[in-house]
């Protein structure tokens, strides 16, 4: 069994587990939390592919989420599209935006990329919230082209409410799970397939990789666009689930929240971001109750993990396991 097949197997098991979960959990609140988990996990896994594997330190990830969410919101509000059609279109728009930004930024490397992508995302944020010109009137309220400082809300969602009545959350649950499943399998195929091989070659030795015909910029732009598509998908289902898309998506603390998931889980691993997403959601939930300490906890988590455990929990887990196994093996050898 190749590593690709093994990780695909793990992925299918995880997806199947989540598909079976509503048989055990029926409370609407908990199902809602798991839906949010799916969405953040999608963003985090894609960012991990980009940053931990492809070596692109992008700080524009929430821009792609926003692009997906705004795409759905605008498609439904202005274009009259059904949500199901708006989501893939918005994800495509996200990939297209990434392609343009990638072509402009990925001539550079390292910190330069981080700064430029951050600046671009911030610029779009500011342009959106300072826009006051009315594009149309919605319910007699002024609606800016990009939603202005309030964003879009109360547009059509997946349409499960009339269909499933009280159980509409289940409909949303499975709709978002489909997007989650696409991301999980997509991410595994990228990391452990040919593209991932190219990334490792580039990371280990740019010069040698390029002499074998692996062009750094080409592969990084490809990674940027593909992950932006999946990140936009997450944004699209976010908008369809919450019936909301607004500038709060651009907030720095949101970006740091997702970043902390990756760092805590394990940058450059395959499954670390999933662990990190679950853990950070729980931690943040608790910290909100303890006097709104969300940002304090996020900041501390980022600092502590980067200083003490830079490869995250998944790596620490593997190390512990191998040390434990290694020790039992040597003790077995000693007994002989």
């Amino acid at each position: 069994m190749t590593t690709l097949q093994r990780h695909l197997g793990i992925g299918v098991l995880i997806i199947a587990g989540f598909a079976a979960l509503p048989m055990v959990i029926t409370e609407r609140y908990l199902l809602g939390e798991i839906i949010i988990f799916f969405i953040w996990a999608m963003v985090a896994m894609n960012w991990n592919v980009l940053m931990g594997h492809a070596g692109v330190f992008s700080l524009a990830q929430m821009l792609f989420v926003a692009c997906g969410a705004y795409g759905v919101a605008m498609g439904v509000t202005f274009g009259g599209l059904p949500v199901w059609a708006a989501i893939p279109i918005a994800a495509m728009a996200s990939a297209a935006l990434a392609l343009v930004i990638g072509m402009a930024c990925l001539r550079l490397t390292g910190a330069y990329v981080a700064l430029l992508t951050y600046a671009i995302a911030e610029m779009i944020h500011v342009l959106i919230i300072t826009d006051t010109e009315c594009f149309t009137l919605v319910r007699n309220n002024c609606q800016q082209l990009f939603g202005g400082s309030t964003g879009f809300s109360r547009f059509d969602d997946f349409g499960f409410r009339p269909l499933l009545k009280g159980n509409w959350v289940l409909g949303n649950y499975y709709a978002v799970l489909v997007a989650f499943a696409i991301t999980v399998l997509g991410v595994v195929i990228i990391i452990h397939g040919r593209l991932g091989l190219a990334f490792r070659a580039i990371r280990d030795n740019v010069g040698y990789a390029s002499s074998r015909g692996i062009d750094r910029k080409k592969y990084q732009v490809a990674a940027f666009a593909v992950t932006a598509f999946l990140t936009g998908l997450a944004g699209g289902v976010y908008a369809a689930h919450f019936r909301f898309a607004g500038p709060s998506l651009f907030e720095f603390s949101t970006l740091m929240f997702v970043l902390s998931m990756i760092v805590v889980g394990g940058l450059g691993s395959t499954w670390g971001p999933l662990i990190g997403t679950g853990l950070m959601m729980i931690v943040v939930e608790f910290s909100k109750e303890m006097g709104d300490a969300r940002n304090l906890v996020l900041g501390l988590a980022l600092i502590l993990f980067v200083v003490l455990l830079p490869k995250g929990l998944s790596h620490a887990g593997t190390m512990l396991a191998s040390r434990f196994l290694g020790r039992s093996r040597t003790s077995a050898a000693n007994r002989k």
Binding site: F57, A111, A114, L259, S260, V263, L267, G299, L302, I303
Partner: peptide
């Protein structure tokens, strides 16, 4: 504590971003 660690450039960006959000909240 991080100066000679591998991936210093990325990790320190993360750490100082964390410090920024922590100080802002304080």
């Amino acid at each position: 504590f991080m100066l000679n660690s591998p991936d210093f450039e990325t990790n320190i960006l993360v750490a100082t971003a964390g410090l920024g959000i922590l100080l802002e909240d304080l």
